[in-house]
């Protein structure tokens, strides 16, 4: 995904939900933001690789 299209707090949230659910217990929001940044980075990097 092009970084220009990323909407913070919306793009990739489904992946974060899956990850959070798989973890099996509530997570600290700061840790969650870190995970979310990783997800966004992966999305942007995937685009880069595809290019």
């Amino acid at each position: 995904m092009d970084a220009k299209n990323v909407i913070f707090g919306e793009t990739g949230l489904d992946k974060l939900v899956q990850m959070l659910r798989a973890s099996g217990q509530p997570q600290d929001i700061a840790k969650l933001v870190e995970r979310y940044l990783d997800i966004l980075r992966d999305l942007v990097a995937a685009e880069e690789k595809r290019g």
């Binding site: 489904d14 959070l20 997570q27 600290d28 929001i29 969650l32």
Partner: peptide
């Protein structure tokens, strides 16, 4: 999709 209570979050 994700709800927050205090500093904790969960689907």
């Amino acid at each position: 999709r994700i709800v927050v209570f205090g500093n904790d979050a969960y689907p």
